[in-house]
Design a binder for these strands. Structure first.
Length: 860
RNA sequence: GCCCGCUUGGCGAAACUGGUAGACGCAACGGACUUAAAAUCCGUUUCCCCUCGGGGAGUGCCGGUUCGAGUCCGGCAGCGGGCACCA
């Protein structure tokens, strides 16, 4: 018997599918549509195991849905702009475009080796002008619709590299590349008005019932809606008592504690703080000091609550005699609420810490229910729970929720405040001072201001002749690119040199796949046909940013008339990571798995010199830890089907998958067993068109029942993303078929039915060998065009059922009964069991619980 | 600190709405085939006790509901994730 030759077979079918355009999706088709999409890859160089897992899952869904009668759209593209291309340019002197396109070529070839049922005719790359010109058009639409705007914003500025850094690129207050101390700078930046949709983005999370609960929760927290009140205070000079023209507006969620206010505080970046700093040297110094303390988490963690008394005072709105000092405090954020707070130390821990440091009063206004209100006091811990209002005039005696309502009404009635909702979500800053991104299509003119690039001038192409390695934005440094005439007045003007955040590119690619070559961003007819994406699959790491941006973008595109829906992804599945043990040599240097030899006792040595190796815990595969396995090497050694099968076996798809050599061996052995099962079955296989026999003997009908139970089970598993369970079921089926021996006509017929079914169920998972076996089983049309097998519901019902018999809840035996046997019969047979008699020791049962077709429990 | 999730053999894991815990696989051990190895096939494998009939314990820990709990409820622990001077 010939061994399975995966190299030949896989190449053969990949060629056949491509030649027959088996996976090209037509826009006009009477079958129902199904759009399955996996998050498109960044072309970093080569595919990694995470890609293999992601795209295998997507391909199972795509092939299964196609067999189930859907017109499936399953496209692939490249998230191709980004910083690594510029780094490659700097380090190796290769142009970002060349680096990117060569990576794309490599990775496309690797994906094609996996046998994915992709429609390659729809391939897109975001760095191609054919894509980004439309993104520029969308930007202009958003600009017209008021969804894109420019404003000053404070940024992390690296003074050595002359560039803005993202928060993630600031490590311990220093630039990740230059190591320079980061400054906060005000810079004009472009923003997209995601906050215009805060409520909508929050509310419609509830409609995404095919999204993981976890992701919805994360987005909910990220949007962070808080119900509270804004309150306006009047401000006076503390020394002279003269009233200032400004009012101080604060946001609070605890307006019930207003009578416990003992100070107010401004953010160092509050306009009033800036005003004061202009006149007062000490205040200016304090604000500067706050700026020096970075915004990184570590810095915040370490920083004390610090403040500076402005000398101004704030009047209590309901007690004309009371005034409290106004501070500038480092813990008040300009980005949240109004950038100013009132401090109630008794009921807020931060305020309490601050009050203790500066010797401010602590007035409790909520007492725990079980405390004596007369001597309730707060020491080191603020009291933040519900209780009874005290020291609070018209709120006294109320509980916290009632006091919140009463205070909101009163503020409103007196015209000094109102109930307000604020969000944690902020507008999306998309300006990047980088070359390898989509140019923002505007022109700055001294007399006309910001002028959009006329649409007829799109795309604004990136120049090819740029220099890398100098600090700053290569576009800005280009000698001629930015110098243009103003489209309005014709005078000298400057092109915007910022490019867009690469998250913009991935916020609408799913829509572009519907009509990837259209000369408008989207063709309504095709987006209306294909969207929403029925099943989106990707990593949990995109739970917030990419998925939220895409939800926003879809709404913005709807406003601009490009799509007619709100939610781009009807179903979302987030898969787990692929993990591997980590290895370090005696010098602490990371080692690749193939530099390490495992020994039987579980320890490991270095292959090169036999030195000791420390085995670290299993972590997600990453180049920096070197715990990576190259997918192409696996595919070369075992074939794509084996790699795919391993990705689907054993671990549930949402959980992390531990890569093991033994696991891939196991998958490889199964592929070969399948091959032998068809090449050398336990008896004859009936012809493909043989008529169904009149009757089946017991063994044959039991076998048939398993065949149909497997169809039903696997179908259900695939619908629910339980790929590991589906693999296990199919193995049970093929194990049974391997044991099915005999030459009788009914057995030969069941063998045929079982093999056909097994091969069809395996088609989505291991498509190459399935195609080959399908052909060898005598079928003329390819498996890729074959329908999913039907279940005969009559065969799902067992005639005889094994029922567990318990005594006091403990298993004592089983009885076989015809389906739906009488309770009396079940009870009588159960009581006859030796194990039951032994266990009840002659006592009369107090009660016998009979659950038909399930269980008998004898209670003594 | 707040929010969420997870915890089942030596390992990855099954167990649909409470009803025979450990399917399917990995590893290990024993055996067959072979001059030998690889490959393949057969068997054993939750733990403990045993007179080999069987008996006891068991799904992170403590408690509860139920005829019956991996599954439901309350509390605790460990691990993982998200958010965080968010007023």
């Amino acid at each position: 018997m010939s061994r399975y030759n995966f190299k030949e077979t896989e190449a053969k079918w990949q060629k056949a599918w491509a030649e027959h355009r088996s996976f090209a999706a037509g826009d006009s088709d009477e079958r129902p549509k199904y759009y399955v999409l996996e998050m498109f890859p960044y072309p970093s160089g080569r595919i990694h195991m995470g890609h293999v897992r992601n795209y295998t899952m997507g391909d199972v869904v795509a092939r299964y849905k196609r067999a189930a009668g859907f017109n499936v759209l399953h496209p692939m593209g490249w998230d191709a702009f980004g910083l690594p291309a510029e780094n490659a340019a700097m380090e190796r002197g290769i142009h970002p475009a060349e680096w990117t396109y060569s990576n794309i070529a490599t990775m496309r070839r690797q994906l094609q080796q996996m046998g994915l049922s992709l429609d390659w005719e729809r391939e897109i790359a975001t760095c191609h002008p054919g894509y980004y010109r439309h993104q520029q058009a969308l930007f202009l639409d958003f600009l017209e619709a008021g969804l894109a705007y420019r404003r000053e914003s404070s940024v992390n500025w690296d003074p050595v590299d002359n560039t803005v850094l993202a928060n993630e690129q600031v490590i311990d207050g220093r630039g990740w590349r230059s190591g320079a101390l980061i400054e906060r700078r005000k810079l004009a930046q472009w923003f997209l008005r995601i906050t215009a949709f805060s409520d909508e983005l929050l509310e419609s999370l509830a409609t995404l019932n095919r999204w993981p609960e976890r992701v919805r929760l994360m987005q909910e927290n990220w949007i962070g809606r808080s119900q509270g009140a804004s309150i306006r205070f009047s401000v006076a000079d503390g020394a002279t008592g003269r009233q200032l023209p400004e009012t101080l507006e604060v946001f609070t969620t605890r307006h019930d504690t207003l009578f416990g206010m003992t100070f107010c505080a401004l953010s160092p970046h509050h306009p009033l703080a800036a005003q004061l700093a202009a006149k007062d040297r000490e205040i200016a110094d304090f604000v500067a000091e706050c700026d020096r303390l970075g915004t990184s988490e570590a810095a915040i963690e370490a920083a004390d609550k610090r403040g500076h008394d402005t000398g101004l005072v704030v009047r209590h709105p309901f007690d004309a005699k009371r005034v409290v000092p106004l501070y500038i405090a480092n813990f008040v954020l300009m980005e949240y609420g109004t950038g100013a707070i009132f401090g109630c130390p008794a009921h807020d821990q931060r305020d309490l810490d601050f009050a203790r440091r500066y010797g401010l009063d602590v007035i409790p206004v909520v007492a725990p229910r079980d405390a004596d209100p007369a001597d309730f006091a707060v020491a080191d811990e603020a009291f933040v729970d519900d209780g009874v209002l005290i020291n609070s005039d018209f709120l006294d005696g109320l509980d916290v929720p009632a006091a919140l309502r009463r205070m909101a009404e009163r503020l409103q009635a007196d015209g000094i405040g109102e109930a307000t909702t604020v969000y944690r979500l902020r507008d999306w800053g998309i300006s990047r001072q980088r070359y390898w991104g989509c140019p923002i299509p505007v022109i700055h003119c001294a007399s006309c201001g910001v002028v959009p690039v006329p649409r007829s001038d799109l795309p604004v192409l990136l120049p090819d002749d740029v220099e890398f390695g100098k600090p700053g934005n290569p576009l800005d440094l280009h000698p001629t690119w930015k110098h243009v005439d103003c489209p309005g007045c014709g005078g000298e003007a400057r092109r915007e040199t910022d490019t867009m955040d690469t998250f913009v590119d991935s916020s609408w690619y799913f829509a572009r796949f519907c009509s990837p070559r259209a000369d408008v961003p989207t063709e309504r007819r095709s987006v209306d046909h294909w969207l929403p994406v029925d099943q989106y699959i990707g990593g949990i790491e995109h739970a917030i940013l990419h998925l939220l941006y895409s939800r926003f973008f879809t709404r913005a595109m709807r406003k601009a008339g490009h799509v007619s829906l709100d939610e781009p992804f009807a179903g979302l599945f987030t898969q787990g990571m692929v993990c591997h043990e980590t290895y370090r040599d005696r010098n602490g240097k990371w080692l690749f798995p193939n530099e390490v030899e495992k020994r039987p006792d579980g320890s490991a040595i270095k292959v090169k010199d036999g030195g000791p190796v420390t085995i670290g815990r299993s972590e997600s595969m990453s180049k920096s830890r070197k715990n990576v396995i190259d997918p192409e090497q696996i595919i070369d050694t075992y074939g794509a089907d084996t790699a795919r099968l391993f990705m689907l076996s054993d671990s549930p798809p949402e959980r992390d998958l531990e890569w093991t050599d033994a696991g891939i061996d196991g998958a490889w052995r199964y592929i070969n067993r399948l091959w032998r099962l068809v090449a050398a079955p336990g008896g004859p296989i009936a012809a493909a068109d043989a008529p169904e026999p009149e009757s089946f003997d017991d063994a044959a009908s039991a076998a048939r029942r398993l065949v149909h139970k497997t169809i039903a089970g696997v179908t259900d598993d695939l619908e629910k993303f339980r790929f590991n369970r589906a693999v296990a079921r199919i193995r049970e089926l093929t194990n049974m078929l391997g044991e099915l021996t005999g030459d009788a006509a009914d057995v030969a017929w069941v063998r045929r039915e079982g093999l056909d079914v097994a091969v069809r169920l395996l088609g989505p998972m291991v498509p190459h060998i399935a195609e080959e076996l399908w052909q060898r089983l005598g079928h003329e049309s390819p498996l890729a065009d074959t329908a999913w097998p039907d279940v005969d519901p009559a065969l799902l019902v067992e005639e005889t059922i094994t029922i567990a018999v318990q005594v006091n809840g403990k298993l004592r035996g089983t009885i076989d009964l015809p389906r739906d046997a009488d309770r009396e019969v079940a009870e009588a047979e159960a009581l006859e069991l030796d194990g039951v008699k032994r266990a009840i020791e002659g006592k009369a049962p107090r009660k016998v619980v009979v659950v038909p077709n399930k269980i008998v429990n004898v209670v003594v």
